[in-house]
Computed example of a mutant assay.
Amino acid sequence: MSQAPDDEAELRKLRWRCRRGMRELDQLLERWLERRWRQSPTHEREVFLRLLDTEDDRLWRWFLGHETPPDADLAALIQHIRQLPV
Rank of each mutant, 00 (worst) to 15 (best):
R31G: 05
R31W: 05
L25I: 06
S2C: 08
R31H: 14
L25E: 10
L49S: 10
Q27S: 14
R38I: 15
T54E: 13
P69C: 06
D56H: 08
L59V: 03
T68S: 13
R31I: 07
G21T: 02
R20N: 04
D26I: 01
Q83M: 12
R23E: 14
E55D: 13
R61K: 09
W62E: 01
L28R: 03
H66M: 11
E44W: 08
L74A: 03
R19E: 11
L51F: 04
I78F: 04
H66G: 09
P69V: 03
Q27K: 13
W62G: 00
L77K: 00
L33S: 03
Q3K: 07
L28Y: 09
E55V: 04
T68E: 15
D6A: 11
L59N: 01
R19S: 13
Q39R: 14
R15F: 06
P85N: 03
L84M: 04
I78E: 02
F48Y: 04
L84P: 00
E34P: 02
R20Q: 09
P5N: 02
L84K: 03
H80D: 15
D73V: 05
I81K: 00
D57C: 09
D6H: 08
R82F: 07
E24I: 05
R82A: 09
L11E: 06
L49C: 11
R15S: 09
A4K: 05
L77I: 05
Q39C: 12
D57G: 10
H66R: 11
R23T: 14
L52Y: 01
D7P: 01
R19A: 12
L49I: 13
V86I: 11
M1A: 14
Q79K: 09
E67T: 07
S40P: 00
E34N: 12
D7C: 08
R31E: 08
R31A: 10
A9C: 07
R38W: 08
Q39E: 14
R20M: 06
